[in-house]
Simulated scan of single mutants.
Amino acid sequence: MVNFVLVAGAWLGAWVWDDLVPALRQGGHGVHPLTPSGLADKRDAPVGPQTHVRDIVDEIERLDLRDVVLVGHSYSGIPVGQAAGRIGDRLAHVVFVDANVPAEGESFVSTWWEGAEKLEAVLAENGDFWALPAPADFAGQGLSNERIAEFLAEGTPHPGASLADRAVLVRPLAELPATYVKCLLDGDEPNQDVAKLLSSEHWRLVRMDTGHWPMLSEPDELARILLDVAAR
């Protein structure tokens, strides 16, 4: 048995993993979806430097979890990658689901693909929050209209403080036992940072023929991938 700790990406809370939880528990595993501070049911919690990393580490230690498979989606790959190095021998594996990965001294904003200035301007225009995507932003990502409506109804603006938080790594990512799940509708290949990590003997690549939110578009397939990780 392992303990899955599932960390939601930008705008999302623990609810986004609901469709995976039954299959993972039926596999005999502990399942612990986590909402980062400032989002969803924790929207009123303050967010500052390293808050989301501490959210993860504190939850694992509070529950005294062992054999942890730590799963981060999208933005949350950054705090998950940092937390993975801080939980020591509690860690069994890390799974990055179409995720950003942390780099020492860099943040989600500083590595934004269109340039940090553009995302900084977007945050400034919205009171230092990242507004929810527009419905058109989900085009080509394999989500039904019902799923998009659920996302927009349940999602919350994402606190800019977490996006600008610069990573502090206590263990090189390449040393972590890791699986990277690449969602092909969001791009055929991982970015250069991830490609370099995948050259490590400790990392492996799994591809899914779906969009950026596979827990909503293909939850059964994502659960199968996670159960395969647990069996290794």
Results as ranks from 00 to 15, higher is better:
H29F: 08
V2P: 15
P33D: 06
Q26A: 15
L12D: 12
L6K: 10
P22Q: 03
P22L: 02
A8P: 05
G38N: 04
G28W: 07
T35N: 01
P22T: 00
F4H: 05
G13H: 06
G9F: 08
D18M: 08
N3L: 07
R25H: 06
V31E: 10
V2R: 15
G30Q: 07
A10F: 01
S37G: 03
S37T: 00
V5T: 03
G9K: 03
L6F: 09
L20T: 11
H32P: 05
G9S: 11
W11Q: 10
W15D: 01
D18K: 13
A23V: 07
V7L: 03
P36A: 02
G9D: 11
L6R: 06
V31I: 11
L34F: 04
L34N: 00
L34C: 01
L24N: 07
A40V: 13
A8N: 15
A8I: 00
W11Y: 14
V7I: 12
W15N: 05
V16F: 05
L39D: 04
Q26V: 02
H32E: 04
G9H: 11
G38H: 02
L34I: 02
W15R: 02
G38Q: 03
A40I: 04
H29P: 02
H29N: 15
Q26N: 12
G13Q: 12
G9I: 07
L6P: 14
L39Y: 08
T35K: 07
A14M: 07
G13D: 10
T35C: 04
L34Y: 00
L24K: 02
W15E: 10
P22N: 08
D18N: 14
